[in-house]
């Protein structure tokens, strides 16, 4: 397996170089997608199946679709060469890179050994779930997750404030297979997402991969020509779903304070239920912000033929 790891690491570095320094944006995007695939394998080799799952769902799947779609919108200005500096300023970049590498080494050196794994395992029985990663994400360090969901919400708000969504261009060729694909696969996306959410309590899974998968399903349906029933109106369902994760987490954090517990410290008997509710809310919000990021603008108040003509 040593040869495998070495080959994997070499391919990853080469792909990272390709993704940032190749002439031609399309080649960069493809290199990035393949990088995401191999990165998922690297996480498997590092014995982090949770991160491999998230990388497969977000890195290789959703981000690839976002980049490809952004590339399509850039088409007017797309030229074969990216305006990279002809000669990068080596006197700056080599010392800066060395300093960064040194800092990272120091940080890795200063990490407590043998890590926090034993501490997590000790409190795991009280956390309400059997998977340590989910316990850290939604119970022990739920505050960090609250901020992560907040960042996603902020990103969506920033994109919506830029204006209405540009109407998606129709594919050059209409294919009956595409419509069928959207209809056949969307239930599969929902099913797999629910499965991952449920599994998150005792095995790799949880809100982030589940949300990414169902968000990807939404993107695929829109690509296949489906009209979402969700609208972006002021009191529309989209906004409610987007803020659901953040609002639920805050409500839980304050609710347990009303019960006499510290901020985000769940009562032991209710921990399992609270984690499940939070995962459901966060997963829905993640899915809706992914679709919102993909649409690149505020969705119309009414979907329909008149929206497409505008």
């Amino acid at each position: 397996m040593l040869v495998f790891d070495a080959l994997l690491a070499g391919a990853l570095i080469w792909l990272a170089w390709q993704a940032t320094h190749t002439p031609g944006l399309f080649r960069s995007v493809i290199s990035f997608i393949v990088f995401g695939l191999l990165m998922a394998l690297a996480w498997v080799r590092l014995e982090a199946p949770d991160i491999a799952l998230a990388e497969a769902a977000i890195g290789a799947g959703a981000t690839g679709a976002l980049l490809l779609s952004a590339l399509g919108r850039l088409a007017v200005t797309h030229e074969a060469g990216t305006p990279w500096q002809e000669r990068p300023d080596l006197y700056f970049w080599i010392p800066a890179g060395a300093a960064l590498l040194g800092l990272l080494t120091l940080a890795a050196w200063a990490l407590p050994t043998p890590g926090l794994g034993d501490d997590v395992r000790r409190v795991l029985p009280d956390s309400g779930v059997a998977n340590p990663v989910t316990a850290v994400l939604l119970n022990i360090r739920a505050f960090d997750t609250l901020l992560e969901i907040g960042v996603l919400l902020l990103a969506t708000i920033a994109i919506w404030s830029l204006g209405r969504m540009p109407m998606p261009s129709a594919p050059a060729v209409r294919s009956p297979a595409l419509t069928a694909l959207g209809r056949v696969l969307f239930p599969m996306f929902v099913l797999v997402s629910a499965y991952l959410l449920w599994r998150g309590s005792h095995a790799p899974g949880g809100a982030f991969p589940a949300g990414a998968v169902v968000g990807a399903g939404g993107i695929l349906s829109i690509l296949a020509g489906a009209q979402p029933w969700l609208t972006g109106g002021v009191r529309g369902p989209w906004r409610i779903l987007l803020s659901l994760g953040f609002a639920t987490m805050l409500a839980v954090a304050w609710g347990v304070m009303a019960l006499g517990q510290p901020f985000f410290a769940y009562p032991p008997g209710l921990a399992g239920l609270i984690v499940l509710v939070l995962e459901l809310a966060a997963g829905l919000s993640i899915a809706m912000s992914l679709v919102a990021l993909y649409l690149a603008g505020q969705p119309p108040d009414h979907w329909g033929p008149e929206a497409a003509r505008r």
Partner: peptide, 16 residues
């Protein structure tokens, strides 16, 4: 499960 997610999302990239 990781393989299942990859297989599910395989269609997304090519359709986009």
């Amino acid at each position: 499960d990781v393989a299942l997610v990859l297989a599910l999302l395989a269609a997304l990239a090519v359709v986009t």
